[in-house]
Computed example of a mutant assay.
Amino acid sequence: MSNPQDQENQSLGKANVPAGGFASIERAFLRLTFWQTLLSLAGVFTGGVALYAALSESEAVRQQTAATVWPYVQVTIRDFVQDDKAEFSLEVTNAGVGPARMREMQLLIDGEVYRNWRAVLAAFLDAEVAESVRYGRSDVTGRVLSPGDSLVSFRTNDRATVEGMQGAIYAGRVSLSYCYCSIFDDCWLAVISAIGGPEPVPVEQCPIYGADRFDN
């Protein structure tokens, strides 16, 4: 038999919970969970947009900074033969607005690698004659050229040498490759021949010619 007091308590408990009360609480909880989820997603989206904006701004600043230190290395050939005078020179100039670090250079004649100027002379002259030719030279590989700096990689007044080099270069037998980098390690590779060549192209890193490097 039920205790009268227990019956009274059960009656009071039922009286305190309105009809449909549990369903209302559940709906309220679901609404709260929905808005919390929506706010969380909005926060993630806002954070993603902010991160993207920060990265874009950082890249734009880097590109702007890189443009202020952009090197541009040109190679110029100067040559003439007139009466009893002759001259041939190969000049390297940084025409950009930032320092250029000269990394690698390679010189080919008829597709064959030549490693120094003495070997180049021997390609145009008798080996014994080539040994007696007087010329001036400057190291290029490993140098840092400031904006506006120039250096003469090779120069000679020997007529036979000048004529030999003119003939080979303007016949398209000679190809010169060189690679240089900015202070941010942005690098460019250029390949030139008698009729010039394309603009230096960006590369991830300079090629390593090793034993085939031109030793100026």
Rank of each mutant, 00 (worst) to 15 (best):
L107I: 14
T156K: 03
D139I: 05
R134G: 10
Q10F: 11
A130Q: 09
G96I: 00
T141M: 10
T156C: 02
G21P: 00
Y72M: 12
V44W: 08
S89F: 06
G167E: 14
S138C: 08
L39N: 00
Q205E: 14
F214H: 00
N216Y: 07
G196N: 03
L125V: 08
Y135L: 01
Q5Y: 11
F22C: 08
P18S: 08
G164S: 03
C181I: 04
G43N: 03
R137D: 10
V69W: 03
F88E: 00
A95Q: 15
S40M: 03
T37M: 01
N9H: 12
P202I: 06
T76R: 12
T141H: 05
G196E: 07
D186G: 02
Q5E: 12
F88T: 05
W117T: 06
L125R: 02
I77F: 09
D6H: 10
Q63R: 15
F214A: 00
G148Y: 05
L51H: 09
L107P: 02
G20S: 00
A123D: 14
D185N: 15
W117G: 06
Y170F: 14
C179F: 07
V81P: 00
V44Y: 07
G172M: 05
A19T: 04
N94P: 10
R159T: 13
D110N: 15
G197C: 04
V81R: 09
S193E: 04
E163P: 01
A211M: 02
V162P: 03
D79C: 02
N157D: 10
V133Y: 04
G43Q: 00
A54W: 13
V81G: 02
L41P: 02
D6A: 12
K14Q: 12
R213Q: 08
S182A: 08
V69Y: 13
